[in-house]
Design a protein around this nucleic acid. Sequence first.
DNA 1: ACCATACTACGATGTTAACCGAAGCGTTGT
DNA 2: ACAACGCTTCGGTTAACATCGTAGTATGGT
Lengths: 230, 230
Amino acid sequence: MVEGPYIAEAAALIGDPARANMLSALMDGRALTATELAHVAGVTPQTASGHLAKLKEANMLAVERQGRHRYFRLAGPEIAEAIEAISVVAQQGAPRHRPTGPRDEAMRFARTCYDHLAGQVAVAVVERFVELGYLTEGGTDFEVSDRGIAALKSFGVEVESLRGKRRAFARRCLDWSERRAHIGGALGAAFLARCETKGWLKTRVGSRSVVITDAGRKGLSKSFGVVLPA
Amino acid sequence: MVEGPYIAEAAALIGDPARANMLSALMDGRALTATELAHVAGVTPQTASGHLAKLKEANMLAVERQGRHRYFRLAGPEIAEAIEAISVVAQQGAPRHRPTGPRDEAMRFARTCYDHLAGQVAVAVVERFVELGYLTEGGTDFEVSDRGIAALKSFGVEVESLRGKRRAFARRCLDWSERRAHIGGALGAAFLARCETKGWLKTRVGSRSVVITDAGRKGLSKSFGVVLPA
DNA sequence: ACCATACTACGATGTTAACCGAAGCGTTGT
DNA sequence: ACAACGCTTCGGTTAACATCGTAGTATGGT
């Protein structure tokens, strides 16, 4: 079992409160500056700089410089998945003071996961799409049927143009709260983006939770027959 | 983002080399005694005792006492999944001295994951089963068709008797090395157990890697048409 | 040219926790 | 009853590391 130490190294990196806060803040897939991350972590910029260097060294973060800013984002979906998996054990791990506040409620209902939609809404959409025969679940990814391609096209997402990219096309992403799969990858990102431009969903800055507008509820119901809980 | 600290707590627990070694050793789902775990971790029994207490406190491990021994095992499949997910980022994280020894080769080919089969062999079996229409992939679990139930019955696994249990029936479990799903849950465990009693597979003590016997190669090919790499 | 901003490098400090030795408790075997 | 074994608790030592203050470099704005 030579892998133990390597696992420990990676886990220890996530295991610091400041770094965990930074990673959590990046879970929506956006890129944040070093100072912003210092703020969410509750440490000074100097300290944050050190943490970010370590996370970058371990290839957990990717960095992009823009003028005098340095934007950090998660290096890939695998990082997000690992953090979600840890969330699951952290959740059931400690049955102590864990006030399920309104924010948690909102998070459960709809949130971003890296750059795609997650939560009850995301799962409801996937289930409906499978029901309609738009999607089938194969391997680690979803397959989109011809009917699905047509439906998504009329919705405003060009499936074919997403395929060529290096990025996974329609990855299955396990939902932290629902424990069911939702759509990640390029298709998941495109779907979320399209919902936003249509005004169906609104993302709030500084939070992963997503608000469904009235138009969104009606649209999801009318276009796809998706039934959302009240 | 109130969840950061909780994630950090869980990750830090996994982030200690001694504890990571213990958890790795338990990844095959067996239960080990405290002293055995002390040995694999490379620490004294006193130190191990402290670590085990913490892991138990966090509900990552379950304990069972038997005489003067205390047997520890992973508290559930979620723990195993989290560790696998961390393995993925640890893998791609550090491209330094990582000698892919023969043990790693063997692990990639066939190993146990908690209590079911993983690696190239496991993935090959799943793909073939899907191809034959025995399985379909739905949500977080697989569905077994009538044809699949019949085939498994003649193989020696009673699918129906597995359903009632509290445990997930046929969970999709993402493969660390292959990055494709294989069968976990009660069905995965039953399949592995049946392969062992038939003499198709041999598990080695103290290692997660699994050996395929000649009978196993022939049997998998003959019964299911599974093609294994040389 | 000047200053403000964003970030990084270095050094000092303080806290945390892993570790082991010694000793204690409970169980098993003779 | 006694010894052996498995495991846990306690105390003290040591090493690692997160943190911040000071100081430095680079970029952007005026």
